[in-house]
Design a protein around this nucleic acid. Structure first.
Length: 460
RNA sequence: GGCCCUAUCGUCUAACGGUUAGGACGCCGGCUUUUCAAGCCGUUAAUCGGGGUCCGAUUCCCCGUAGGGUCACCA
């Protein structure tokens, strides 16, 4: 009976620093492929480098994966397999496929120690990459490469091969930088007489500098995107499409749910060359996803970013609801809300764009006059006359008619008559205290009749 | 430098060997508008070079060139 082999993929990060978008795209593809195939996805923390591991980095990996919605079926910590690694290391030595070599330590201490080298058969290794096709590499250049620092300290090349085998990994999906390592792994696999898995080497995710994404040079940790209020669905969608196009041939679709990405996952439509990660595109994706959010979902994300002082202002919640659409228009990530409303420090109030919805604006006659009246010696007086008339026109409006269209209806004729800028600009400035703000009808309808008229009359 | 991989607008990409080489982001411009955004519309912009194969190459092959990756007792 032919048993159908269940697909098994894995993501095997080393916890030596907070991982970036490039690492997580690898995780996405391995996960997407496993889910697409009804297979298994394994998370394995590769912590053989005890000197560089950190608990913080490991937690960061769990956090990012969970945020992105990448769940796993099995989880391993590589260092817990040490006994198994030692056992197989000894087997290789016993079979003379590896040997102990007494050499001076590379750390500069001058100490002599026993390291384990693999007896390289110096063959030409060929494997078929799922993305690139056949790749052949002469392993002679590799020499007798080191597979363990000491008998008790196996190195990556040994550990990864053993763990992948023991965990029944069928598809090794990793970044292009590992192409050069694959011959070593295949040599080891052959020494153990184990099956060779399928390999897919992903094109690199590049920084603006066209170099491989690097945590210390050109990339942010993935968890930073979570921290500043990007939506995980947007990030997933965006990152997954760096180097892969899930759209139907001829289709221009760019927005895909994770379920769609699973359904469409295919190595055949993967790019071979590296691709630059573009934050502008991510921002666009995020805005698109913000647009789709329900009111409840929007505020669930947004409320985290509301400054402390805002809680103390009466009817704040009501006002926030009223200007929700303005937030949606102005932000590309949720932390931008904090900027729009100014920082936590009360002394910053007035500096931020949306402050005028929550406090009286700064009165400033210098910016009150529209540009065409700037040179008119009577410009300010005329402007005040317009404002007085605006207040008079608004006075009769009732609670029912105090809305965008109602306000516009009573003012627009007058504004047209006197010059739109002459009338509408000072009204908007009176309401906002700023040179930039939403339009005057919008402002007035949000602020309400009392506040609107009060703010206008301040100037008269 | 050796080995390996790759090559379409600035960026991400589309185009069973036959298209005016398409879309998105960004940029720029216009509309709208009192302003700034948003929105709508539009413009600019690419097949690295040279040889083949073919009636016909972005597409297949070769050679250059360029870029990237890797050459650890890291992963």
């Amino acid at each position: 009976m032919e048993e159908t082999k269940r697909i098994v993929t894995r993501f095997a990060p080393s916890p030596t620093g907070k991982a970036h978008a490039g690492s997580y795209r690898t995780a996405m593809y391995a996960w997407l492929f496993a889910r697409n195939q009804g297979g298994k996805f394994i998370l394995r923390i590769e912590d053989t480098d005890t000197a560089r591991n950190s608990k913080e980095a490991q937690d960061d990996i769990y956090e990012a994966l969970s945020w992105l919605g990448i769940d796993n079926d099995e989880q391993y910590i590589q260092s817990e397999h040490l006994v198994r690694h030692q056992e197989l290391l000894n087997k290789l030595i016993t079979e003379d496929k590896a040997y102990i070599s007494r050499e001076e330590a590379k750390d500069g201490s001058g100490v002599m120690k026993d390291i384990i080298r693999f007896r390289n058969p110096n063959t030409l290794v060929t494997f078929v990459d799922l993305i690139r096709g056949p790749i052949s590499i002469d392993t002679t250049d590799l020499g007798d490469f080191v597979i363990a620092r000491t008998i008790n300290e196996p190195l990556y090349h040994l550990a990864v091969v053993i763990d992948d085998h023991d965990e029944r990994v069928t598809h090794v999906i990793r970044a292009e930088e590992h192409i050069a390592n694959t011959p070593r792994h295949i040599l080891l696999l052959e020494a153990f007489e184990w099956d060779i898995p399928a390999y897919a080497h992903l094109p690199l995710v590049l920084g603006q500098d066209k170099q491989k994404l690097s945590k210390r040079r050109n990339a942010l940790p993935m968890t930073d995107y979570a921290k500043v209020g990007y939506l995980p669905e947007a990030v997933f969608n965006c990152i997954a499409m760096i180097g892969w196009n899930p759209a139907d041939p001829g289709s221009d679709q760019e927005l895909f749910t994770t379920e769609e990405l699973i359904k469409r996952f295919d190595f055949a439509r993967m790019q071979k060359g590296g691709a630059v990660f573009n934050i502008e595109k991510l921002n666009w994706f995020n805005r698109e996803y913000i647009k789709k959010l329900s009111m409840q979902e929007f505020w669930k994300h947004a409320h985290v970013w509301l400054p402390v002082w805002i809680e103390n202002i009466p009817s704040t919640q009501e006002m926030l609801k009223k200007i929700e659409h303005l937030f949606r228009d102005h932000i590309e990530k949720f932390s931008d809300i904090a900027t729009l409303l100014s920082a936590d420090d009360v002394s910053d109030r007035g500096a931020a764009e949306f402050d005028y919805f929550f406090m009286e604006p700064i009165v400033d006659e210098k910016i009150l006059v529209w540009k065409t009246l700037k040179d008119d010696p009577d410009g300010l007086e005329k402007t005040k006359t317009y404002l007085k008339q605006v207040a008079a026109l608004l006075a009769p409006l009732t609670e029912e008619t105090w809305n965008y269209d109602g306000i516009k209806n009573v003012l627009i004729e007058y504004a047209d008559q006197e010059g739109k800028g002459n009338v509408l600009w000072p009204l908007r400035v009176a309401l906002s205290g700023k040179e930039k703000s939403p339009d005057p009808f919008e402002m007035a309808s949000i602020l309400g009749k009392d506040a609107t008229i009060r703010r206008v009359l301040v100037y008269i």
